[in-house]
Design a protein around this nucleic acid. Structure first.
Length: 610
DNA sequence: CCCCCCCC
């Protein structure tokens, strides 16, 4: 007999109430379930090759087929008659598929294997467009003793996924996506994708400690939390990346406010909870932790609070900072890293707690982060570790080795996009203003500086006085006085040093389509502009005019989006309007065109001005 | 039963 084709995707339709005639499905498992009566009932795990459904039952008149071994694993069947029915509480119930007439098309021995890589229909249905048909009118309510809410039953041996001899019988595990508070006889086989540190709490309702972890299998993900005794019992056993069998946890609705996982429920460990490490050779079917690595430059285009997986070199590492939260009065420790990657972008990543304390960034390791959150402030976006985030230092993956090679060969010297740079002025968006309009509108004449952005081209960068020798102390950029004896004196620090650091103070002319202006760049932007460190620029200007000339002329006639600070300043008795470059970034044409289209609409009155 | 991750 040729192997029959499954009616791909039909389970999602059926479980949405559609009456599809004679669907062809594969049986992936069949188990006797407990009922509160002596009546024998069989539960089926059915697949259509795309989705599976573990909420299927065999009508008792068909039990004989199972006794004869006709419905073994992998059997392909045609459902000649079936119905669906809601069980469980009003509004929160599950739809159960009840099979009343069935024809075997291919025996399990003939088929031998699972067809396709089915996922749970509940998960998949959210992204698929499933036509919503009227519920099947023929569905009769399932009697309680026939439903799965058989929690009072003592005889575990016949349950699907039973607990045997104190170890977890994993021959047929439940998909995470099928877990619900209405059914607690299950074993899941799941990979731990993240684990929090142990945290203590103390409030009006009591005190205690806990840790939580995120679990994942092919069907979905769920958060699990272990309190107090369970926290102590399981904390060391649980390792991120390992696969375990879990059973006997309590399910409850997830508070979406606190969890970004795609699951309506979350689990709490109980005194009965069992956790057992799964051998590596038995891990099949449990996906590896997936990193959707995005280039750092792309973070600029993402929304506040979005999750980011990325990889970069820790180019700079900040000091450990300790502070007390004003809202909670709790003490926090944090450390900020600067990550760079081959998109020539840099972003700040904040580590917390022990991860911040123990971090050693001086070796400039490769940092891989999963599930970090975007925090937006004044137009800059930075990343922060939070619940569910994973940090890996020097992970052994090709991307990491590639980055290492890139960075060790000077790759990180040409950072052009500062994702975390703030535009200042306290506003989240910077107005687009042309250079001419900035003059006409007298920007910068108020008490506070004005900030605006424009697209402009670099005309010429002045080499004269492009750098100065500054105090070598961190956080002091004051110009030093060369005392002529190998000592450099800083008036602010009131000290002399044998060394100094170069700082940039670059004047250049930029132009947009309306006008041109001289603007000033300080070191951070200047390094970005010239694609060399202040040290290299200073060295070249002092010792190597040809190299300096190339550095300065290379960027002529290149266009950027400039974010500018505009302020009137007094020079003696003269007031001059001064423009300082806050940041410059390559032109994001998608964003820039949006701005142009908006202006066109406003100008012409055609279309809404958004 | 937690659910805090500040500030600019």
């Amino acid at each position: 007999m040729p192997i029959a084709s499954l009616t791909t995707g039909v389970i999602a339709r059926i479980m949405h109430g559609e009456d599809v005639p004679q669907p062809v499905l594969q049986i992936l498992g069949i188990k006797r379930i407990n009922t509160n009566t002596d009546q024998e009932r069989f539960r089926l795990l059915m697949s259509d090759g795309k989705y599976y459904n573990s909420y299927a039952m065999l009508a008792s008149q068909l039990n004989e087929m199972q006794h004869k071994g006709l419905l073994n694993e992998n059997t392909i069947v045609r459902l000649d008659k079936y119905m669906t029915s809601m069980v469980g509480k009003e509004g929160s119930g599950k739809r159960v598929l009840i099979v009343t007439e069935v024809t075997v098309l291919n025996s399990g021995d003939e088929v031998k294997t699972k067809i396709g890589e089915p996922v749970t229909y509940e998960n998949a249905a959210k992204q698929d467009t499933v036509p919503k048909a009227a519920p099947v009118t023929a569905s009769a309510p399932v009697k309680k003793e026939q439903s799965y809410n058989n929690n009072n039953n003592n005889n575990n041996n016949n349950t699907m996924n039973s607990t045997m001899n104190g170890t977890l019988n994993a021959s047929l595990t439940h998909p995470i996506a099928s877990l619900s508070p209405y059914q607690n006889k299950w074993v899941i086989k799941a990979r731990v994708t993240s684990k929090t540190a142990i945290r203590t709490w103390s409030n009006a309702r009591g005190e205690g400690k806990l840790f939580s972890m995120d679990l994942m299998d092919e069907s979905g993900e769920i958060r699990a939390t272990a309190f107090k005794e369970q926290c102590d019992k399981f904390y060391d056993l649980i390792e991120v990346g390992n696969v375990y069998f879990f059973s006997k946890c309590q399910l409850k609705p997830a508070n979406k406010q606190y969890s970004q996982l795609k699951n309506d429920y979350e689990m709490t460990f109980t005194g009965e909870t069992m956790v057992q490490l799964c051998d590596e050779d038995d891990n099949g079917g449990i996906p590896e932790i997936k990193f959707d690595l995005i280039p750092i430059s792309q973070v600029s285009n993402m929304e506040n609070k979005e999750a980011v997986d990325t990889i970069g070199i820790c180019k700079e590492v900040g000091e450990l900072q300790t502070f007390t939260s004003r809202t909670t009065n709790k003490e926090f420790k944090k450390r900020e890293l600067t990550l760079v990657d081959m998109s020539n972008a840099a972003v700040t990543l904040t580590l917390w707690g022990d991860e911040a304390v123990n971090f050693d960034g001086h070796v400039q390791p490769v940092i891989l982060v999963k599930g970090s959150r975007i925090n937006e402030f004044n137009g800059g976006k930075s990343l922060s570790m939070g619940g569910g985030s994973i940090l890996k230092i020097n992970p052994d993956i090709p991307e990491a080795h590639k980055l290492r090679g890139w960075f060790d060969n000077g790759g990180g010297d040409n950072i052009s996009t500062m994702v975390s740079a703030r535009t200042g002025g306290g506003s989240f968006s910077t107005d687009w203003v042309t250079l001419k309009d900035a003059r006409i509108r007298n920007l910068g004449s108020g008490d506070k500086p004005d900030y605006f952005q424009c697209k402009a081209v670099v005309h010429i960068v002045k080499q004269e006085n492009a750098f100065y020798k500054a105090c070598p102390q961190t956080d002091c950029n004051k110009k030093v006085v060369d005392e002529g004896n190998g000592q450099y004196r800083c008036e602010r620090c009131n000290a002399a040093f044998p060394n100094f650091k170069y700082r940039l103070l670059i004047n250049m002319s930029i132009g947009d389509w309306t006008s041109n202006r001289w603007v000033t760049c300080f070191s951070e932007v200047g390094e970005q502009l010239l694609k060399h460190s202040a040290q290299e620029v200073g060295d070249a200007l002092e010792n190597d005019p040809a190299t300096a000339e190339k550095m300065f002329s290379d960027i002529n006639f290149s266009s950027y989006i400039f974010k500018l600070r505009c302020k009137n300043e007094m020079y003696g008795d003269m007031t001059r309007n001064k423009l300082t470059v806050q940041s410059m970034s390559p032109i994001n044409y998608r964003e820039y065109n949006k701005h142009l289209i908006k202006e066109l609409k406003e100008m012409t009155g055609i279309g809404p001005a958004n």
